[in-house]
Amino acid sequence: TTVHIGNVTYHFDNPEEAVKWAKEMAEKLGLRIEIHGDTIRVE
């Protein structure tokens, strides 16, 4: 599972961890997340 924040990509072996981490980052940055299969974007 990959999480994209701007130009930076993070890789997670556990999809649930990826979603949890992306949600925390989105809250901190005042952004929202979009999930497309195994790709998560924070925008």
Results as ranks from 00 to 15, higher is better:
13 D>N: 11
11 H>E: 08
12 F>V: 01
34 E>V: 09
43 E>F: 15
25 M>V: 12
2 T>Y: 11
38 D>Y: 04
16 E>H: 12
16 E>C: 04
40 I>L: 04
8 V>I: 13
19 V>Q: 07
12 F>L: 01
6 G>C: 03
23 K>C: 04
11 H>L: 10
12 F>Y: 05
19 V>G: 05
19 V>E: 07
36 H>I: 15
1 T>P: 05
29 L>K: 05
37 G>D: 06
32 R>L: 15
24 E>Q: 11
41 R>I: 15
35 I>D: 04
15 P>L: 14
18 A>L: 02
13 D>T: 13
29 L>D: 08
10 Y>Q: 05
33 I>P: 04
36 H>M: 13
31 L>H: 13
20 K>E: 12
42 V>H: 01
16 E>S: 12
10 Y>K: 08
40 I>W: 02
18 A>K: 00
25 M>D: 01
37 G>L: 04
1 T>K: 06
26 A>F: 04
42 V>T: 04
30 G>W: 04
30 G>A: 06
28 K>L: 14
21 W>T: 02
39 T>M: 08
38 D>E: 07
3 V>Y: 01
8 V>P: 00
14 N>A: 08
16 E>Y: 11
30 G>K: 03
21 W>I: 03
13 D>V: 10
28 K>T: 09
38 D>W: 03
15 P>Q: 14
26 A>E: 04
23 K>H: 11
19 V>S: 06
19 V>K: 08
27 E>S: 07
41 R>S: 08
11 H>Q: 10
32 R>A: 15
36 H>Q: 14
17 E>N: 08
37 G>R: 04
5 I>G: 01
38 D>S: 13
34 E>W: 08
25 M>N: 03
25 M>F: 07
19 V>M: 15
43 E>L: 14
15 P>I: 11
16 E>N: 12
31 L>A: 14
34 E>D: 06
41 R>K: 12
21 W>R: 02
9 T>A: 12
9 T>H: 09
1 T>E: 02
43 E>Y: 15
34 E>S: 09
16 E>M: 11
34 E>I: 08
37 G>N: 06
37 G>Q: 06
41 R>L: 14
25 M>H: 05
36 H>P: 01
10 Y>S: 03
38 D>R: 03
23 K>G: 08
5 I>V: 10
29 L>T: 06
5 I>W: 06
42 V>W: 01
34 E>H: 09
4 H>G: 04
11 H>D: 06
2 T>L: 11
5 I>Q: 02
8 V>G: 09
9 T>V: 14
15 P>W: 15
22 A>H: 00
3 V>H: 00
26 A>V: 02
8 V>N: 14
22 A>P: 00
6 G>I: 08
31 L>Q: 08
22 A>C: 03
14 N>W: 06
39 T>S: 10
25 M>L: 11
5 I>P: 00
3 V>T: 01
17 E>F: 08
23 K>T: 15
34 E>C: 03
28 K>D: 08
4 H>R: 07
27 E>I: 07
9 T>E: 12
34 E>Q: 06
14 N>L: 08
4 H>L: 15
24 E>N: 08
20 K>R: 14
22 A>T: 02
43 E>P: 06
21 W>Y: 09
37 G>Y: 04
16 E>G: 08
28 K>G: 07
41 R>T: 13
35 I>E: 05
40 I>P: 01
3 V>P: 00
17 E>K: 09
12 F>D: 00
8 V>F: 13
43 E>H: 11
16 E>P: 05
38 D>F: 05
32 R>M: 15
9 T>S: 13
38 D>Q: 10
32 R>Y: 08
31 L>F: 15
14 N>Y: 08
11 H>V: 10
28 K>W: 09
13 D>Q: 12
27 E>R: 06
41 R>Y: 15
38 D>A: 09
30 G>Y: 05
36 H>E: 15
10 Y>D: 01
1 T>Y: 10
24 E>Y: 13
21 W>V: 03
23 K>Y: 13
43 E>W: 13
29 L>F: 09
26 A>W: 03
9 T>F: 09
1 T>N: 05
19 V>D: 03
30 G>D: 11
25 M>P: 00
29 L>V: 05
37 G>V: 03
36 H>F: 14
26 A>P: 00
28 K>F: 08
40 I>E: 01
20 K>V: 10
20 K>W: 08
10 Y>P: 00
15 P>S: 14
8 V>R: 14
3 V>F: 02
35 I>L: 06
22 A>D: 00
6 G>L: 15
22 A>N: 00
29 L>Q: 07
13 D>E: 13
15 P>C: 04
33 I>Q: 02
37 G>E: 06
30 G>E: 07
27 E>D: 14
5 I>F: 07
31 L>I: 05
14 N>T: 10
41 R>F: 15
4 H>C: 05
26 A>T: 03
35 I>A: 05
1 T>S: 08
13 D>G: 09
32 R>T: 15
24 E>V: 10
34 E>Y: 13
30 G>L: 05
36 H>A: 10
20 K>L: 12
10 Y>M: 07
42 V>R: 00
43 E>D: 10
14 N>E: 10
17 E>L: 12
11 H>N: 07
31 L>G: 15
32 R>S: 15
29 L>M: 11
16 E>K: 12
31 L>P: 01
30 G>H: 08
17 E>W: 07
1 T>I: 12
25 M>C: 03
27 E>K: 07
16 E>L: 12
38 D>N: 15
9 T>N: 07
20 K>A: 14
3 V>A: 02
7 N>W: 08
7 N>K: 13
38 D>C: 04
42 V>S: 02
25 M>K: 05
5 I>M: 10
7 N>D: 14
39 T>C: 05
16 E>T: 11
25 M>A: 06
28 K>N: 09
23 K>E: 12
1 T>H: 06
41 R>C: 04
36 H>C: 04
17 E>H: 09
5 I>Y: 06
12 F>M: 02
5 I>R: 02
4 H>N: 07
12 F>G: 00
9 T>Q: 12
13 D>I: 10
4 H>S: 09
20 K>D: 09
28 K>P: 05
7 N>I: 08
29 L>A: 07
32 R>W: 14
33 I>S: 02
29 L>N: 11
18 A>S: 02
9 T>W: 08
31 L>T: 13
39 T>D: 08
7 N>L: 10
12 F>T: 00
1 T>G: 06
8 V>T: 14
1 T>R: 05
19 V>N: 06
19 V>W: 13
23 K>P: 00
6 G>K: 09
12 F>Q: 00
25 M>G: 01
31 L>S: 13
26 A>Q: 03
23 K>W: 11
36 H>K: 11
33 I>Y: 14
13 D>H: 10
6 G>E: 11
25 M>R: 04
24 E>D: 10
17 E>Y: 11
14 N>C: 03
29 L>G: 09
28 K>H: 10
10 Y>C: 04
32 R>K: 15
1 T>A: 12
18 A>M: 02
6 G>Q: 12
30 G>S: 06
39 T>H: 11
28 K>I: 11
5 I>C: 04
12 F>A: 01
40 I>D: 01
21 W>E: 01
43 E>R: 05
8 V>Q: 14
4 H>W: 14
26 A>Y: 03
42 V>D: 01
33 I>N: 02
30 G>V: 04
2 T>F: 11
41 R>D: 04
38 D>I: 04
19 V>A: 07
27 E>Q: 09
15 P>F: 15
27 E>H: 09
22 A>Q: 00
28 K>A: 14
41 R>P: 01
6 G>W: 09
29 L>H: 13
14 N>I: 10
30 G>C: 04
6 G>R: 06
34 E>F: 11
17 E>V: 11
39 T>Q: 11
11 H>P: 05
30 G>N: 14
36 H>W: 11
11 H>C: 05
37 G>F: 04
15 P>Y: 15
26 A>M: 03
25 M>Y: 09
13 D>M: 11
14 N>G: 06
37 G>S: 04
37 G>C: 03
4 H>F: 14
42 V>Y: 02
34 E>G: 03
4 H>Q: 12
33 I>L: 14
11 H>G: 05
31 L>V: 10
6 G>H: 13
22 A>M: 01
3 V>I: 04
6 G>Y: 10
20 K>F: 08
43 E>Q: 11
6 G>M: 13
22 A>R: 00
17 E>I: 10
31 L>C: 04
26 A>D: 01
2 T>A: 08
36 H>T: 11
31 L>R: 04
19 V>F: 14
41 R>G: 03
12 F>P: 00
2 T>N: 09
10 Y>E: 04
42 V>M: 11
18 A>R: 00
29 L>I: 05
43 E>C: 02
18 A>P: 00
33 I>E: 03
6 G>D: 12
22 A>G: 04
42 V>I: 14
3 V>E: 00
16 E>V: 12
10 Y>V: 11
39 T>P: 02
37 G>A: 05
32 R>G: 15
9 T>L: 11
32 R>N: 15
3 V>S: 00
3 V>M: 01
43 E>N: 09
17 E>A: 11
18 A>N: 00
38 D>M: 06
6 G>V: 07
